[in-house]
């Protein structure tokens, strides 16, 4: 393999890994219980780590083809997405696109179509990378993760993924659903790419607007990625109440204030995609766009 990175020229050959292939979730959790193995699903993240000569665990437990791990199930109150669902399947899920367009937009914006066929939702989240797209949308949606170890289970917020232990596995991702008589929900994911395609975001933002049955704003939510500690939920305290007083949905002043807070409360880092100062301005702009689109969708009654 040819590399132009001089830092990699002096590293030795890669140590081989051991790959274990369990046939059930319980068997996978038993293999992980020792705490010295890592989960591998689509394998993309691990392959890129090896490509970059970053430390890799000696033992991998393959979970990408576990039975029942790649299903999407619906109840009246939530949609449960198996952690093994590929991003390409998520992107193409018509029912999910109607309920949470922000989530299918985020899944469909990752890398290339060919890579999305390999990457699982659970793997994308567990990578704990602040620039990954789906976690930004899921954080804005208030999704919860079901995680399990060999003995028990618990739930985590997306922002708590750093607390996932080596002996734990993400089993599924749960998105709340709103009953039709409780109003409408609109959501939108916005990703700013400096080159226009196929790269990590300069800025990525997810937004949710909930309207009550009268069309007044009941709740607003924003999450920002590609920033330190991301995805960062933006504190919009008081804004929904302020917006709710105005008839006819959300007005520009509320959107501007939400965008200002998004920029104020996040700490982007300068890199090849832009300086920190530039990204701060882009965060405000793309927060504005995401909220505007989410509000339109909520008003139209689509994108619950």
């Amino acid at each position: 393999m040819t590399t132009l990175d001089r830092a990699l020229e002096h590293t030795g050959p890669l140590e081989p890994s051991m790959l274990l292939t369990p046939h059930s979730l319980d068997e996978a959790l038993r293999l992980l219980a020792a705490g010295d193995a890592a989960v591998v699903a689509g394998g993309v993240g691990h392959t890129l780590r090896r490509h970059d000569r970053r430390p890799c665990p000696a033992t991998l437990v393959s979970v990408g083809r576990l039975p029942g791990f790649d299903t999407v199930t619906w109840t009246d109150t939530e949609v449960v997405i198996g952690a093994g669902v590929r991003l390409s399947a998520l992107e193409a899920d018509v029912r999910l696109a109607a309920a949470w367009p922000m989530v299918t937009e985020a899944a469909g914006s990752v890398a290339t179509a060919r890579i999305r066929r390999m990457v699982t939702l659970g793997g994308n989240i567990a990578a704990d990378d602040d620039s990954h797209d789906p976690p930004v949308a899921l954080a804005a949606a208030g999704a919860r993760l079901t995680v399990r170890d060999a003995l028990s289970g618990r739930t985590l917020a997306i922002g708590d993924i750093g607390g996932l232990r080596r002996d734990e596995l993400i089993q599924d991702v749960r998105l709340p659903l709103t009953a039709p008589d409780q109003g409408t929900v609109g959501s939108s994911f916005q990703k700013f790419l400096v080159r226009g395609l196929w790269e990590y975001a300069c800025v990525n933002v997810g937004a949710v607007v909930r309207l009550d049955a009268r069309g007044a704003v009941r709740d607003l939510s924003l999450a920002v990625g590609s920033v330190t500690g991301g995805p960062v939920p933006v504190d919009l305290a008081g804004l929904a109440e302020e917006a709710g007083e105005a008839a006819g949905g959300i007005d520009d002043r509320v959107i501007d204030e939400a965008a200002r807070r998004a920029a104020e409360q996040t700490s982007p880092y300068g890199d090849v995609r832009g300086s920190a100062a530039y990204k701060t301005r882009m965060i405000a702009e793309f927060a504005r766009r995401a909220l505007t689109t989410a509000a339109l969708r909520a008003a139209e009654g689509t994108g619950r």
Partner: peptide
């Protein structure tokens, strides 16, 4: 690009053990 189970995938990201 190769075809795995009918889908085009980049062979450089496909772990052989999978």
């Amino acid at each position: 690009t190769v075809i795995v189970d009918g889908e085009a995938v980049p062979a450089c990201l496909q772990m052989v053990g999978l």
